[in-house]
Amino acid sequence: MRMRVVNHPVLGNLPERNRVTIYFNNQPFQAYEGDTIASAMMAEGIKTLRNHEESGNGRGIYCNIGHCFECRVQVGERKVVRACLTPVSEGMDIYSLSVFKKGSESHC
């Protein structure tokens, strides 16, 4: 909630929207309908969405419109999506991707 631009001198006040609960790495967060995963996490001050497959270094959004694929996260059991293009929904389970295990193609 803390990073929301509630009042804006030109665009006006944020309209009322339905709240949803999403889970990022099993931790619950409040978000709003209309948020993308990226905007919901950014609103909570969370910038690191995943860790690099080899180095393990943190990564967050870069382009925010689907071009760069830097914000890829796992939703549910195995689907990998771009956080910046994926709307949140009630109860959504989101996981950071992390370092590939040696000798395995799995990343979980």
Binding site: V5, M42, R59, G60, Y62, E70
Partner: peptide, 22 residues
């Protein structure tokens, strides 16, 4: 590549469209 570095357009969309400050 540090989290918190983004393109200028990314910040624009985050602020004006999603109404979230990066």
């Amino acid at each position: 590549t540090l989290p918190g570095v983004m393109s200028i357009g990314a910040a624009q969309v985050m602020g004006n469209v999603h109404r979230v400050k990066p």
